[in-house]
Design a protein around this nucleic acid. Structure first.
Lengths: 245, 245
DNA sequence: GCAAAAGTGTTCTAGTTACACCCATGC
DNA sequence: GCATGGGTGTAACTAGAACACTTTTGC
């Protein structure tokens, strides 16, 4: 924002121009692994490297609007679906040398989506793909850092919000919901305690009457639930501390 | 960040230029009230209104560096002191119409400082002043919103970090530390329980051997403490829920 | 029957809450 | 003395952790 100290008759073009972009860290859980949506760069710098999807903020849109627009373009999802997704501003990355070409300030966003069909190419040339986190060599620019920040953020968010249901299809079992936590946190959780905790939080999930589904091929069919209306998780569901998977 | 889909031979000046600024929400506790550092605007828009201090990000600095530079200018604190302060990126505000003059994207930062001497004018014309939160009519631009977000953030931060000591002078009593929590949260806390909680958290505070100080003019002199090395507060110190002051 | 996954019950304990109570100081 | 704020003690309550156990399915 212009402060009171800004020069009086300033000139819009007096400064070296800043480009403002958005970067998206979009996660999903597939086959019990955390996946992130990436695009392959076709040109230098970082030609051939994977990068987070993103793009310029247009002159008449906010960064949040730009993020939703880019997400719709990259995933091929309908506007209504994209509008209903949970998109959260992560933070802004502004190191002067983060892009060698020019001064680019990027507002990063995070989204959690259920396991989607492989994204169609969208309007752009480069194909967007879901890749397991850690399965790539190196990300372009400072995207490695952004992705790490995003992982940390969603891990923390699961503790005190009901956001985990965003990773799930419309109807899901408590086992699937638990797997979301275990995948994101890289831990195992006590099944009985997890169940009680979730059911004891009003509005976290609501049962689908009479419905049940087999999960692993064997075992007792699990009851189905839908996401409830609650967003906060009080008291929080804390991840175990020094506990590896 | 430039995505893989960015136009190839792009022109730095092809877009309407974005200005990138920082805004600062700097808090202190004075006389048991939460104060925020504000500057009075001398020119339109919002001439005469109070605004958060801030300014342009220079071509060769990051937003965080700009925030520290502006903070030093506004408060008149030495560079070493400013370098040691806790400055945290809050979020970025990018509504296209948030500044009527041009497109300004602002990265907001929050800082917590102990009760400082009234800031000297700094290099700039407008005087910066500490004002109790809520004691002004209206803030310029979307600064009301930024300030509200900043308050919420620091309130939450006190719950699970040891950051409250940033509001205190180098040596402080547990009563003063408790008052920080009560002021920011607008609640009262049980004194004995607060004391135990703080002392039971390793590294939150460390005693200053033998030192004591009278606080309210009356009463038993209180032992003095210094901030410890810990940053996280495990388990957290949760604010009471439906409890007014 | 056996393995696997869902679902229920129970015990133990750390952490918090809500108090009552004593101590040291200024007026 | 008495008001004021610092400091200690303690009983009740709550949420969570750990783990045994039952149920329902596929093979």
């Amino acid at each position: 924002m212009m402060s009171a100290q800004a020069p009086e008759g300033y000139d819009k073009y007096a400064f070296e121009p800043f480009a403002v972009t958005v970067d998206l860290a979009v996660f999903t859980v597939r086959d019990g692994r955390l996946h992130v949506l990436l695009v392959e760069r076709g040109q230098d710098p970082y030609a051939g490297a994977w990068a987070l999807p993103g793009g310029f903020v247009l002159p008449r849109e906010s960064a949040g609007q730009a993020a939703r627009r880019e997400l719709a373009e990259e995933t091929g999802l309908s506007d209504e679906v994209v509008a209903s997704l949970h998109l959260e501003q992560l933070r802004t990355y502004s190191d002067p040398d983060r892009d060698p070409r020019m001064r680019v300030v990027s507002v990063a966003y995070t989204a959690l989506v259920p396991d989607l069909p492989e994204p169609r190419g969208g309007g752009d040339a480069a194909q967007a793909r879901w890749l397991p986190v850690g399965s790539y060599d190196r990300l372009a620019f400072d995207h490695e850092r952004i992705l790490a920040d995003a992982r940390e953020r969603i891990g923390a968010k699961l503790e005190y919000t009901c956001l985990a249901t965003s990773f799930c299809p419309p109807e899901f079992t408590l086992g699937e919901l638990r797997q979301v936590y275990e995948t994101v946190w890289g831990t195992t959780l006590d099944r009985p305690n997890f169940r009680r905790k979730v059911l004891a939080t009003p509005g976290f999930v609501e049962p689908v009457a009479g419905a049940a589904r087999l999960t692993g091929g064997r075992g007792k069919p699990a009851a189905l639930y839908r996401a409830g209306g609650a967003t906060a998780l009080h008291p929080p569901l804390l991840r175990p501390e020094g506990k590896p998977s």
